[in-house]
Design a protein around this nucleic acid. Structure first.
Length: 875
RNA sequence: AGGCGCGUAGCUCAGUGGUUAGAGCGCCUGCUUGACACGCAGGAGGUCGGUGGUUCGACUCCACUCGCGCCUACCA
């Protein structure tokens, strides 16, 4: 690109305006490939960003605009600094949110047992249900898993278009030829490849064990997806008869419905009250099962009666007790959350009175936990085993974050990825990572140290990456999970529910002697934790991958440090023995004016597109970029208005600088040299801020400089630059103004990409976004170095002009009011400064005469009015 | 209960071991100055959450404390 020298014939519009700039430049950037990634560049020259793939089944909200703007500011800065920026966009279309949206949108339900129907058409000519009534009235249509997945893909493709349009309007400098989807073929291949590698190394394993389970979604969930919710409950004091029959042990429980699942009582080993009972047995009320009383350090003497009932399984502590005390299993809750049928008296369900146990249990069968609880309380009351009345409490209960009912613990076969054994190594990885802001590292460490199990990566869902595994079916029809059949890597990705393993025929599916596909899909995070590998196309385009991995930046919000960030670090650690990126920039949330997190559920979301249209993209970006890293920021249209004014001001100031900017020449005037000296410092500080990911501070500094430049410097030199004081003074002023504009447009470019590009286009070739980032050398070289005298001169002139303006303002006179006389009290040094600036001050302040008076302290007196005719004293 | 963060002008937020603590918005008062009324100039407004301590000097460092937010833990 040729750096066209500024000339007096610029294409400056008469009335510069913001309207239409977004479309104009978005199209132009696309046409010119301004943000195209040059994949011939070596790793060292590349700056790679692990862009968060937004969930396409949700809608974009202001929070997205906020945080993606931050990343874009960094991307644009790095690009201008000469790094080749790898800035792809991903779409997160994997997982439950998409499933739910597809179910509702098309009125279908996935039935994995149905065969694929290649000729499938939607019942209502593919029209989504229009109204709520229509939706409710229509029975969901059952479709096969492949058909269901096709519908998911169809809907997400539409969503992605809308997202891309918004991002372009916002001005994200993404290379739109490099997008990926978390359910796309590449993501599936990368995920399955990684899975098979880890399976071979034993880092992933399969086990049948008690697992956190959501009874509505009927799937396992991981620790990271839990959240506690305060819900009302009640303590029920229940008595267990000791073996003799006359003495009782009382326990407190909030889940009396699990008494049939009780396998032991437990108390603290040092608790004197219960020590004599350890090793003895009690009988469960209603069901007459004999259970031991055992000691365990986790039992809290302060809670309840100090002795607790262990059930299989009421909570995660039950699992610990059950495991560590080697207790038997008496599971009562089915995957759908209801009580399963049980034959009392059969092995494992022994009872002192099987008929009575059966009678009581029959009432509970097929009930949900909540209903069973009410029923059993009645039974306990009748039997006299309920001591007093239930005492209501509010307590924290674990929920799946997307779920509506408390989690249960259900025994099932699941895939796990080893996590616990890497805990210390992961803490160390967290310390190697550069966090912005730095304190976010504590959250990571906090989470890693609190891990209490391996990562359950299998989900009993449909729309996700399937496990690339089949199992032999034995001659007796049982599935042999111990000998999984895996495909060769060339076949990946595979869907074992439709694909057939090598050496088998399709008709052997689920047949004795045949094979069965693994029915589960991976946790969405199991794919999302590979975004660097997916975006970099590991195993698909390894040349690209080597140029971008490990990446430079992971931008994301703080609420998913424990999931996305943590899992990504884990995967890179186990597979690449490295960090996935060197920096993590953590953005805050957007809060509504009531300081609550903005979210769809609260109904306080503003549509981003409407915002961009109303205020202009640069204005919205200005607001976003003002939010400091990691800090929650209030949604504030006032800030957007400020941003809009800034953008307009930039256009107008550019117009002023570029109109009649001849002649130019050496920068000789002290005020002009002072401006450039201050500008050099701004460049230095803003650059350091941006290098440190402190975009907000860089913007703040640049903005403050710019307003000062407009309000003081430009006013001071206006007259001179038009030639009122001769050609040399004009040349100096014009050269300084042009140099400053040239720098300011580039300093603002990462934040306000549209107006800066517009102004740049009036007098420069190429895109400002590919122009080199300004340097202090570039600014100071024509001066022969920093000019501190000039700097003081500019400050002094600004000060004097301020005094003159204040006097007029206080006198409520127009600023054009002439000043008959300005008396300036200065010391010797001040005298030198005054000489340097007085012509500019006089012109800008309409001062007719300036007199210097020698004094120790500076002061100035302003006399308004016309200078009296010659010959008369001024006073 | 532990961890992290925050508490500065009516609002949104900067700030730093050192002279009278800053910006923008809002408010008030003026002003159509040869880029801009989507503008310009000016003004009022704060004992920097509280208490102690270190220091010649604290909004800044330390301790304690209060309030708010988030993360983690808390189901007997």
């Amino acid at each position: 690109m040729s750096d066209r020298a500024p000339s007096s014939s610029h294409d400056v519009p008469d009335k510069p305006a913001l309207e239409g700039l977004e479309q104009k430049w978005a199209e132009r950037w696309e046409r010119d490939g301004t943000y195209r990634f040059d994949r011939t560049r070596a790793r060292g020259a590349v700056y790679a960003i692990d862009t968060p793939p937004p969930t396409v089944s949700g809608s974009l909200h202001v929070g997205h605009v906020f945080s993606y703007t931050h990343t874009d500011c960094i991307a644009r800065f790095q690009r201008m600094r000469g790094r080749e920026v790898f800035y792809p966009m991903g779409w997160d279309d994997n997982g439950l949110p998409t499933e739910r949206r597809v179910q509702n949108y098309y009125g279908v339900r996935c039935d994995p047992h149905l065969p694929y129907d290649p000729a499938f058409v939607l019942p209502d000519a593919a029209s989504p249900a229009k109204t709520r009534g229509e939706k409710a009235a229509r029975q969901p249509v059952s479709v096969s898993r492949p058909n269901f997945i096709e519908l998911c893909s169809r809907l997400t493709a539409e969503d992605e278009k809308a997202f891309e349009q918004l991002w372009r309007q916002l001005g994200l400098s993404v290379d739109w030829s490099m997008t990926y989807a978390t359910i796309g073929q590449r993501a599936q291949r990368v995920s399955q490849l990684s899975f098979l590698r880890l399976l071979q190394r034993g880092v992933v394993y399969q086990v049948e064990a008690p697992t956190l389970w959501d009874v509505d979604f009927r799937t396992a969930v991981a620790q990271a997806e839990l959240e506690d919710r305060e819900v009302p409950g009640a303590y029920h004091r229940v008595r267990f008869a000791r073996a003799g029959g006359q003495e009782f042990v009382e326990i407190d429980t909030t889940r009396p419905e699990l008494i049939p699942a009780c396998v032991a009582l437990v108390a603290h080993p040092d608790d004197e009250r219960f020590r004599p009972l350890f090793g003895t047995e009690v009988v469960t009320p209603l069901f007459g099962a004999r259970v031991p009383i055992r000691p365990h350090a986790l039992a809290d003497p302060e809670k309840g009666t100090g002795i607790a009932m262990i059930c299989t399984f009421g909570d995660v502590t039950d699992v610990t007790w059950w495991r560590e005390l080697s207790l038997p299993v008496r599971a009562v809750i089915l995957p759908n959350g209801t009580f399963r049928p049980v034959a009392w008296g059969s092995p494992g369900w022994e009872s002192a009175d099987p008929a009575r146990a059966q009678r009581h249990y029959a009432d509970l069968e097929h009930l949900s936990a909540q209903k069973a609880r009410a029923r059993i309380v009645e039974q306990l009351r009748e039997s006299g085993d309920l001591m007093g009345e239930p005492r209501p409490v509010t307590h924290a209960v674990k929920f799946y974050e997307k779920g509506d009912r408390p989690l249960e613990i259900v025994t099932s076969r699941q895939w796990f990825l080893r996590t616990l054994e890497y805990r210390e190594a992961l803490v160390e990885r967290g310390r190697q990572l550069r966090w912005h802001p730095s304190y976010m590292q504590a959250r990571f460490e906090n989470w890693v140290n609190g891990l209490n199990g391996d990562w359950c990566i299998s989900r009993q869902r449909f729309f996700g990456v399937p496990f690339p595994v089949w199992y032999p079916v034995r001659e007796d029809g049982a599935i042999d999970y111990s000998r999984p059949i895996v495909p060769p890597v060339e076949r990946l990705p595979v869907d074992p529910s439709t694909d057939v393993p090598d050496g088998y025929r399709a008709d052997q599916r689920d047949q004795p002697g045949g094979f069965a596909g693994d029915p589960d899909v991976m946790d969405t995070w199991a794919t999302s934790s590979l975004t660097p590998q997916v975006a970099g196309a590991e195993g698909v385009d390894d040349d690209l991958f080597r140029r971008v991995f490990p990446m430079d930046l992971r931008p994301q919000a703080h609420d998913i440090i424990r999931t996305w960030l943590f899992y990504t670090v884990l995967r890179a650690h186990v597979e690449h023995d490295s960090l996935p990126w060197s920096n993590a920039a953590i953005s805050g949330w957007v809060l509504d004016p009531d300081r609550k997190k903005m979210s769809k559920s609260k109904g306080n979301v503003v549509t981003p597109m409407a915002l961009l249209v109303e205020h202009g993209s640069d204005a919205v970006r200005y607001w976003a970029a003002s939010g400091r890293p990691g800090t929650d920021t209030a949604f504030d249209t006032g800030q957007m208005r400020v941003g809009r004014r800034l953008a307009i001001k930039l256009l107008n100031a550019s117009k002023f600088v570029l109109t009649r900017c001849e002649p130019t020449g050496p920068v000789t005037a002290p005020v002009d040299r002072g401006l450039l000296t201050a500008l050099a410092q701004l460049v230095s500080e803003a650059t350091a801020d941006l290098c440190d990911y402190n975009y907000a501070r860089a913007l703040e500094r640049t903005e403050a400089f710019f307003w000062d430049f407009c309000d003081n410097y430009l006013e001071l030199v206006k007259s001179r630059r038009y030639g009122d004081h001769g050609p040399d003074g004009a040349a100096s002023a014009n050269a300084a103004m042009l140099a400053t504009l040239h720098v300011l447009l580039r300093l603002f470019a990462p934040f306000l990409p549209f107006v800066t590009e517009e102004s740049w286009s009036w007098w420069r070739d190429g895109s400002v976004h590919r122009a080199p980032w300004p340097t202090t050398t570039e600014v100071l070289e024509p001066l022969g170095g920093a000019d501190e005298h000039g700097r003081r001169a500019l400050a002094f002139a600004t000060d004097l002009l301020g005094t003159v303006r204040r006097t007029k303002s206080e006198a409520q006179k127009p600023l054009r009011t002439p000043v008959a006389r300005l008396v300036v009290h200065v010391d010797a040094a001040g005298r030198g400064l005054l000489d340097a600036v007085q012509a500019d001050v006089a012109a800008a302040g309409f001062v007719q005469r300036i007199d210097a008076v020698e004094a120790d302290a500076f002061s100035a007196e302003v006399t308004l009015g016309e200078l009296p005719p010659a010959g008369q004293p001024a006073q």
